[in-house]
């Protein structure tokens, strides 16, 4: 197999150079590496392993899709690895927002997501804005009025300053002129504990985590961070519906190929993941994790990434983060 592969690839490269790319069919000839920027067990890792299991079970790929963990430095270890695999049609990665943000704020993170070969966006993760069940704030509007009344007193718990929680806060503060604090905690557990213990007043959390706390009567959801209402929470308005017209901040997961992939190769992967996203197994996973499974193709993904990057850059600048690119 290996022996026939090298000349085969060389021939393929020659042919691609000679004729328009879309005329060619790409077929992987060895194991596909599916790079993940988190360690085993991280959200991204679980997501990618679920995908590779489905591709395997439904025989959507002629070769195995092997998850490869490249943790470290946010997305930078993984994106450095991708850069080292330039022009290799057998290396793809699972990206999230952090792949866009790291190059914006880190001088040392030199590999932009758009310079690789974006293949598809698979899901968007909605979130809920929650308060304690006995909190005086019944709506997002009430919270913001209270924040206006005593600037800087109220607190949100969240992750890093680059996270969506803070992005939404920045946008809301800009829109309304209210001001409140953002307290960073490295792990989701600590963020939850801070709200449960009453040390902060509000947090943004994903629905699968918040759902149980709401059911147990500990939390109350007052708004959704989502383009449309989640099936599980039909009565909770989105932030925009609550009267705050801020841009949508999707928390996305998708697939990107190493830089220099031909259109035919991108088309092959796009097709493979599109088929995977239509399987009942995947639909069940998306439903259980309360994700938004809208599939965005490669041709729409690139313009989206560019405009989203511009939005993020403005938000980060406003948040006081030093933007380097």
């Amino acid at each position: 197999m290996i022996g026939s592969w090298t000349p085969g690839l060389a021939a393929l490269a020659l042919v691609i150079a000679a004729v328009p790319a879309q005329a060619q069919q790409f077929k992987p000839t060895r194991t596909i590496e599916f790079v993940v920027h988190g360690g085993p067990g991280s959200g991204n890792d679980v997501f990618a392993r679920q995908l590779s299991t489905i591709i395997d079970q439904e025989k959507l790929s002629p070769v195995r899709v092997q998850v490869v963990n490249k943790p470290g430095g946010g997305s930078t270890s993984a994106s450095n690895y991708m850069a080292s695999k330039k022009n290799d049609p057998h290396v793809i990665a699972c990206f999230t927002n952090i792949w866009l943000i790291d190059p914006l704020v880190q001088q040392a993170a030199v590999n932009r997501l758009q310079d690789m070969s974006p293949i598809a966006r698979l899901v968007v993760e909605p979130a809920l804005v929650v308060v304690l069940a006995d909190s005086p704030y019944k709506t997002l509007g009430q919270f913001i009025d209270a924040a206006k009344a005593s600037p800087g007193k109220l607190r949100w718990s969240g992750g890093s300053i680059m996270s969506r929680e803070n992005t939404v806060r920045q946008l809301l503060m800009q829109k309304t002129g209210a001001r409140w604090q953002f307290i960073s905690f490295p792990s989701g557990g600590e963020r939850l504990a801070a709200l449960l213990g009453g040390h902060v007043e509000m947090m943004i959390v994903d629905p699968s985590e918040a759902g149980e706390q709401i059911r147990a009567g500990k939390f109350r959801a007052i708004a959704q961070v989502s383009a449309r209402r989640l099936p599980g929470f039909p009565d909770i308005p989105t932030i925009q519906e609550a009267g705050f017209d801020i841009p949508d901040v999707p928390q996305m997961r998708g697939v990107v190929g190493a830089a220099g992939m031909s259109d035919a190769t991108v088309a092959f992967y796009e097709d493979m993941f599109l088929k995977a996203s239509q399987t009942p197994l995947w639909k069940k996973f998306v439903e259980e994790s309360q994700l938004d499974g809208e599939f965005v193709r490669a041709k729409d993904l690139k313009p989206f990434l560019n405009s989203f990057e511009a939005t993020l850059r403005d938000i980060l600048k406003d948040a006081g983060v030093k933007v380097v690119r």
């Binding site: 943790p71 001088q107 040392a108 993170a109 890093s160 006081g320």
Partner: peptide, 21 residues
């Protein structure tokens, strides 16, 4: 050493992206 959680700035990484985390 690494990326500061609060400000998202890299500290003492000496240009090494491996040290960001």
């Amino acid at each position: 050493i690494g990326t500061d959680l609060f400000s998202a700035q890299a500290r003492f990484i000496f240009g090494q992206s491996e040290l960001l985390g």
